[in-house]
Write a protein that binds this DNA or RNA. Structure first.
Length: 416
RNA sequence: GUGGACGUGGCUCAACGGUUAGAGCACUGGACUGUGACUCCGGGGGUUGGGGGUUCGAAUCCCCUCGUCCACCCCA
């Protein structure tokens, strides 16, 4: 066996890249209409950045990071998510001098997990962050932007689940309440959750083990334990979502896997046919992260979209594609003229390749067909003499003779 | 990280432990020297994922390993 790609690291091949491009372009045009600007971030960061922001006891930091020593012995990590680097850049470049900063980015993330369909070790996200806005309207508007994005891509069955995790003034108290409850009702808990009681009791709430679901059925509810500020914030987020015509599912048991979230958290699921890999976007508010990483106290809201999962949802028919034209020259004079004509057509936006082979026209037509040509353009001696070209529509076999300067118009017009 | 299913030409899949591992599609040459998709005839292409073992004999049974997929875990 020759050298292959590393497990969990995939090539995205032509045929799939069109859908990816469509997704990224759609995101770009919608996000930019909402005032977001793109930021390009490094793929590798100091390990410490992720350990401090995501949380030492999270699965990501405990067992999923690609961490190496570089040549100087410093611990560096392939980014497992985009928010921490974005926040790091925000602080490092003092972007907080602006009243609000809206950033988006796209690129690969890395997590050492067992690969499955829709879940890879290198996977791609589109992320967006609103930094410096505490208003619940920021949450709601950003969510509505996301829903609009999914709507534009015609994603079926996109549903929004939201929850509030509280903040520094109410979560610790709730955590304690839950901790005590779990201590008393620990009998049915799975092994994992028994450990979580100490490390991160909230996670027991969204454990899928039946014993844990039983045991936590009557556990104190997070939503009921929110402090005044968090409760109103959550109410307002829901109110404004309704204003945008969005009816979210309130899921008080949804707990995110990253420690920095406060108040609003959410997840958008769609019918991916992937079972547990049905989350195509998720995120929430992280009002404490910027200050924890050394910046000024800055309330933020952000999310990430999983491109692989999303691309599985797109029907091929709705991914725009531009038709390919294959040019066939018959004879050396036609070849010469072709050089000039093709360049002209390309300049007017026609996608054209020349078939450089020299066999029988039959064979070359067959090659054109296999190249996926929408049109074959033939320039032979006859055409050359008359200043025309023969255009064949490969779909319906219709064929006509067209003057050179009209070719781009005909093909370009038929393209859409 | 745990449990399971599966790896056979480029693709989809056949082949009871028993000749030279087959078929369809794809590829290629011809019928057909300016017209693809349809038809007909011919041709090439395999270390049966890799390694080891059992056996007179292994694609088939056993072990290891790599990979894909599924469930769990977790997440995008």
């Amino acid at each position: 066996m020759s050298v292959t790609a590393i497990r969990g690291f995939n090539d995205i091949l032509p045929g799939d890249t069109e859908a990816w491009r469509h997704i990224e372009q759609t995101a770009w045009s919608i996000f930019s209409a909402y005032g977001f600007s793109e930021i390009k971030l490094p793929i590798v960061e100091k390990t410490e950045l992720f350990a401090r922001s995501i949380g030492e006891t999270t699965d990501i930091v405990e067992k999923e990071m690609y961490t190496f020593a570089d040549r100087h012995g410093d611990a560096i990590t392939l980014r497992p998510e985009g928010t921490a680097p974005a926040v790091r850049a925000y602080i490092e470049h003092k972007l907080y001098t602006a009243p609000v900063t809206r950033l988006y980015y796209t690129g690969p993330m890395f997590r050492y997990e067992r690969p499955q369909k829709g879940r890879y070790r290198q996977f791609y996200q589109i992320g967006a962050e609103v930094l410096g806005d505490e208003s619940p309207r920021a949450d709601a508007e950003t969510l509505s932007m996301l829903m609009k994005f999914f709507g534009t891509l015609k994603v079926k069955g996109a549903t929004l689940q939201v929850n509030s995790l509280g903040d520094a003034s109410c979560r610790p108290a709730y955590k304690k309440k839950l901790y005590e409850y779990l201590k008393e009702h620990s009998s049915g808990l799975c092994e994992n959750c028994l450990r979580r009681i100490e490390t991160n009791p909230l996670r027991a709430l969204d454990c899928k083990a039946t014993g844990c679901i039983e045991a936590t059925r009557n556990a104190p509810s997070l939503v009921d334990s929110l402090c005044e500020g968090c409760a109103t914030h959550f109410d307002k987020v829901r109110y404004f979502l309704k204003l945008y015509g969005i009816e979210p599912v309130i899921n008080p048991r949804m707990v995110r896997g990253l420690d920095y979230y406060t108040r609003t958290t959410f997840e958008i699921t769609a019918d991916t046919g992937l079972g547990s890999q049905n989350a195509v976007a998720a995120g929430g508010r992280y009002d404490g992260l910027v200050s924890e990483l050394g910046g000024p106290s800055t309330p933020c809201f952000g999310f990430a979209i999983g491109i692989e999962r999303l691309s599985l949802l797109l029907e091929r028919s709705q991914v725009p594609s531009s038709p390919l034209t294959v040019f066939i020259a018959l004879g050396i004079d036609a070849e010469k003229k072709g050089v000039e004509l093709i360049s002209l057509w390309r300049s007017s936006g026609i996608r054209v390749v020349e078939d450089f082979s020299t066999g029988a026209l039959k064979t070359r037509m067959k090659r054109a067909d296999r190249l996926g040509a929408a049109f074959a353009v033939i320039l032979g001696e006859n055409e050359l003499a008359e200043g025309v070209v023969t255009i064949k529509d490969m779909k319906n076999a219709a064929q006509e003779t067209i003057a050179w300067d009209r070719v781009a118009g005909i093909i370009g017009g038929a393209g859409k």
